[in-house]
């Protein structure tokens, strides 16, 4: 959704001219934590169209970072850069530097397949494989050779399903197709599938947008629990959700990262006029 020109022109000109240094991603409490992933000057082009215009962002370890912003602002695009899912998009070009533990993920030394195992992803629409629940979860460990033997694989499946809060509901029906579960269960199955390969970072692209409020509450609780072991980046349209689950929030707008701060700070005391406009519901 594009912003009506009236609103755009209402943004004070001095805001646009604010020096970059003032928009440092790390500030106050956030600066103390080590960054698991860093993005510097990330630009993304789809053919001739520029989707991201130079993003600088730090993703801190064992924290939930929420990416918010109106539709088409580039937050999903940014998310998909972090595990190079954009590689699969025809005509997509990424510039700038994204590092995982200081290593450039677009560098020659990094293999996209390995990267995606280390940086897992949960998608907007639950997309379990049309196979059994067991096969869904065990697929990742199997292709990466993470479990030797049947017993170990069973163990991984059980742990993953337990962590995803799904074990109690499916432990007697592991052989049934994953697609036979309800929407919320399917999404938790997808989370179990993602954590079965023990990734370091989990990316979630609007994981609750296709779910009802109860299933959403389930997933949100789960995200909070997973934070202890994983670094999580979540894209959401729901600002209450961002406020509930995240410690850090970044606001994206028209391909730019407007500001990134502690979640509380963003929602109570945004520094940018556009952020304030968005969270108070003026647009988006």
């Amino acid at each position: 959704m594009s912003i009506p020109s009236g609103i755009r022109s209402s943004i004070p000109s001095q805001l646009k001219l604010r020096p970059r240094g003032d928009r440092q991603p790390n500030r106050a409490s956030g600066a103390a934590l080590p960054a698991k992933m860093t993005a510097r000057g990330v630009k993304v082009f789809y053919g001739a169209k520029q989707a991201l215009k130079g993003i600088d962002l730090d993703i801190q370890e064992n924290r939930v970072l929420a990416l918010i912003g109106p539709s088409g602002c580039g937050k999903s695009t940014f998310l998909r850069c972090l595990n190079r899912m954009n590689d699969t998009v025809e005509g997509c070009r990424v510039e700038g530097r994204i590092a995982l533990d200081g290593e450039d993920v677009y560098g020659k030394a990094v293999d996209a397949v390995q990267l995606r195992a280390r940086v897992g992803m949960v998608f907007q629409k639950p997309n379990p494989f049309p196979k059994s629940i067991y096969d869904n979860v065990s697929y990742g460990p199997r292709i990466h050779g993470l479990a030797s033997g049947r017993d170990e694989l069973d163990e991984v499946v059980q742990t993953s399903l337990k962590r995803a809060g799904l074990w109690a509901e499916v432990k007697d029906r592991l052989r049934e197709p994953g697609t036979s579960l309800s929407g919320g269960q399917q999404q938790r199955l997808c989370i179990a599938r993602a954590i079965a390969v023990s990734p370091e970072v989990i990316l979630m692209d609007e994981p609750c947008s296709a779910l009802d409020p109860i299933a959403t509450a389930h997933i949100e609780e789960l995200i909070d629990e997973l934070r202890a072991n994983y670094t999580i980046v979540i894209v959401t349209h729901n600002m209450q959700q961002a406020a509930r689950v995240s410690q850090r929030t970044a606001f994206f707008h028209l391909g730019e990262m407007v500001e990134c701060d502690d979640t509380e700070e963003i929602f109570t005391n945004p520094r940018d006029e556009r952020t304030q406009g968005y969270i108070t519901g003026r647009y988006g």
């Binding site: 397949v113 995606r116 195992a117 494989f129 990742g140 997808c190 079965a196």
Partner: peptide, 21 residues
């Protein structure tokens, strides 16, 4: 559906594994 390809690629299946499996 492309979501199946994304799901497989997203947990680190190689493109060939995605297609074959």
């Amino acid at each position: 559906p492309p979501s199946i390809r994304e799901a497989a690629l997203g947990i680190g299946a190689s493109p060939l594994q995605t297609v074959l499996h």
